[in-house]
């Protein structure tokens, strides 16, 4: 189950962060998303280590936490997508797929002429679409 998704701007500021959890750990998820930016930085700044994933937007597993796994995705405009999931066994392909969809939703949202780039995303449509996407991910992987 995806418990949290976040869009982080290129100054590492949160543009959108939404958790999908009933437990009272939303703030902890914020911490996890924030910490995962360090890994993103590390990977972006040391592309040599990344090797074959040089030109890839999907950053893969960022780090495993106690109960979560954190995945990352970096767009060409240095906007980061962070995803926190409780599922310990996720296929990379599924993740890629999810991020691809998420990216297109994000692109739709920022293409809004009233959206100022670099500002928080407050679009309700975006939130709805993201939430649908997250739910569908859970169901598809469960199925």
């Amino acid at each position: 189950m995806i418990v949290c998704v976040a869009v982080v701007g290129h100054q590492n500021n949160p543009l959108y962060i939404q958790s999908f959890t009933d437990a009272d750990d939303a703030l902890k998820l914020h911490h996890i998303v924030h910490c995962s930016l360090d890994v993103v930085d590390e990977r972006v700044n040391n592309p040599k280590k990344a090797g074959p994933t040089l030109n890839e937007t999907f950053l893969g597993l960022l780090y495993p936490s106690e109960n979560f796994k954190v995945y990352g995705y970096l767009t060409n405009t240095k906007v980061k997508f962070i995803l926190v999931t409780t599922e310990l066994d996720v296929k990379d392909g599924d993740m890629r797929n999810f991020f691809r969809k998420f990216h297109s939703v994000y692109v739709d949202a920022v293409s809004n002429p009233f959206h100022v780039p670099g500002k928080k995303i407050t679009s309700k449509t975006f939130a709805e679409r993201v939430s649908t996407l997250v739910k569908s991910f859970g169901s598809s992987s469960a199925a």
Binding site: V39, E42, R43, N46, K48, K49, A50, G51, P52, T53, G60, L61, L62, Y63, P64, K91, D92
Partner: peptide
């Protein structure tokens, strides 16, 4: 240094922090 040998290779990859 953080060895990169396993990162990005297999599906069950290890991350830097580990």
């Amino acid at each position: 240094g953080i060895p990169a040998l396993l990162f990005g290779v297999a599906d069950k990859l290890l991350t830097e922090w580990e």
